[in-house]
Amino acid sequence: MFYDLYNYWMVIVLMMIGLYIVISRNNLIKKLIGLNIFQTSVFIFYISVGKVDGGTAPIFSSTETLYSNPLPHVLILTAIVVGIATMALALALVVRIKRAYGTVEDAELQELDNRC
């Protein structure tokens, strides 16, 4: 059983690290890096679901009969694109925040807002 689920548990560990960075760090950029880890861990989860022991990449050839599942690959291709799009937008926001406030530390931002 341990071996059966080993991959999934690694995913969970990665996920928790990512989530931890997102909610515990003050720096807005660090939060985004954490978010990236968080998202990637879910990608790894999907790809693990699609793996078949002894299978090969799902590109048809006359010598192979066992392939890994192509559907999770497709979904994750889409999800990666969504992820990078989100990141681009988030980073743009961070740059604007830096411009407007002069800092990217969450706690300092809160203080600045409470003052005015």
Binding site: I29, L32, I33, N36, T40, F43, I47, S48, G50, K51, V52, G55, T56, A57, P58, I59, Y67, S68, P72, H73, I76, L77, I80, V81, G83, I84, M87, A88, L91
Partner: peptide, 23 residues
């Protein structure tokens, strides 16, 4: 290793290319 070559291609380009670059 998980047979997802297309995804690997993309992840390498995005995760190790575009994302750190923008960062």
């Amino acid at each position: 290793a998980m047979d997802a070559v297309d995804v690997a291609f993309t992840e390498a380009a995005v995760g190790a290319g575009i994302f750190p670059l923008l960062m």
